[in-house]
Design a protein around this nucleic acid. Structure first.
Lengths: 247, 247
DNA sequence: ACCTGAACACCGTTCAAGT
DNA sequence: ACCTGAACACCGTTCAAGT
């Protein structure tokens, strides 16, 4: 099932009929969001300013306000584009593989757009929610159709999504790409080598080991959650009918 | 064990010995951080600007640069203050109750300072890490002293902390305190009542139910993780000696 | 050694004016 | 209907000058 809601209707780009005066296509919501997403991916979210975005589109910053009420609306828009990249499984399969694939896809997508993770938590103050809604509905459906009770589904969804977001943020926070200040590494090293924190030292060393052979840490944590959910479901299924439970 | 590293030595506040000319105590790192934390708690992190912080301290914004190299250093400082509020268990107890208490304390602390959650992931570009290090060391120690292998400890730590951060961010993101735009609620309602998203509708309703009687969602997810870890440890303990494993 | 005033290079956003 | 130039009210930060 891959339902799509009313797509935003965009005016077609006029075929610059007369003369050679206008070189650039008109501004549209889609073009603005595309450029914004690109800018954030290339240069980081802090490089995404209205002036720079305008420049990239060959337009003054103020023109953007003809298409979006605020910068926040643009941010909401590109976050929804990112969430739209998450692959949602078709219905009908095993819940464990479906949810697993969904979570892994979200993990990969968020790693591709490192700036997005922090924004996902804030919105949705302008109502650019289409992909978000599809994502949540897909997860919920998989649990419910596998026979999870509404109560267990409620908690299962939060547990899974907490892991996806929490783990991804952790990883992104640690892999600061070469932006690590040598002075800071120095201090960190000094603290660790006092011997006061043996376990932290051990842990820090592990971060430098090659883990390519093993299961990823993301999957390890995901399995903890999924295994637990399987047990919880097994515990509730025989005890109560699947159609409901008296309160 | 409650080790403390070299405390920052602060010049004592001079007792304004002469006349009544100077009314305010001198600026110190500690006073600046205290005021910054207060400002963030009261008015949100976006209200924390150098000018406003200076104003609260009765000083020009530029004076702050005599004590901190940048605004970022101040942010790192107050985040570390927040992390310092997390209660760390004494060593020697059961790992499950210890880790559990630690996670719950972190959860509560982060809910008390809703702005902190998003900052925790970014630093530590200025090396204000004392509380952070204590926190991580405490978690690692509990696992290791309970007989977890270094490998399992590595993953256990990441799994637990992912849940703490992920779940807390989720909760904070959803409980936007009355800042919800009615127009957005309207749209959300419209989407949900199309009937296209039955599971989302069910889920949304659950969010309005009284859950005070039940175990919190945070604890539910935490238990999934902790139960899973217990099983993983049981699986590795009899098979290999606790002192090490040949690779 | 610490604090200040003025300034710089940026922000997001408003508004009247253009076409 | 869309785009623009100038301006406003803010940012973080630098720097020469004060004490």
């Amino acid at each position: 099932v891959h339902l799509r809601r009313k797509l935003v209707k965009e005016p077609e780009v006029p075929k610059l009929s007369s003369g050679t005066t206008t070189r650039r296509p008109r501004l549209t919501k889609a073009r603005v969001l595309e450029a914004a997403l690109q800018l954030a991916d290339e240069s980081g979210i802090e490089a995404l300013t209205m002036r720079r975005l305008g420049e990239r589109l060959g337009v003054e910053a103020m023109s953007l306000y003809n298409h979006f009420p605020s910068k926040e609306a643009i941010l909401d828009g590109i976050v929804d584009l990112v969430i739209g990249e998450i692959e949602l499984p078709d219905s009908g399969g095993e819940w464990e593989t479906g949810v697993r694939r969904c979570a892994l896809s979200a993990y990969e997508v968020l790693l591709r757009h490192p700036w997005a993770c922090r924004l996902v938590m804030i919105p949705p103050s302008t109502g650019a929610l289409n992909s978000r809604i599809d994502y949540i509905e897909s997860l919920l459906r998989q649990f419910r159709q596998a026979g999870f009770s509404p109560e267990l589904t409620y908690r299962a969804y939060h547990a899974v999504d907490s892991h996806v977001l929490g783990f991804t943020m952790w990883e992104l926070g640690h892999n600061l790409p070469a932006s690590v200040d040598p002075a800071l590494v120095e201090e960190m090293f000094a603290v660790v080598s006092t011997g006061e924190f043996p376990y932290l030292l051990e842990h820090a060393k592990q971060h430098f080991e090659d883990r390519s052979e093993e299961q990823s840490g993301f999957e390890f944590g995901l399995d903890l959650v999924l295994d637990g959910l399987k047990r919880r479901q097994a515990a509730e299924t025989p005890a109560v009918s699947q159609r409901g439970r008296k309160h």
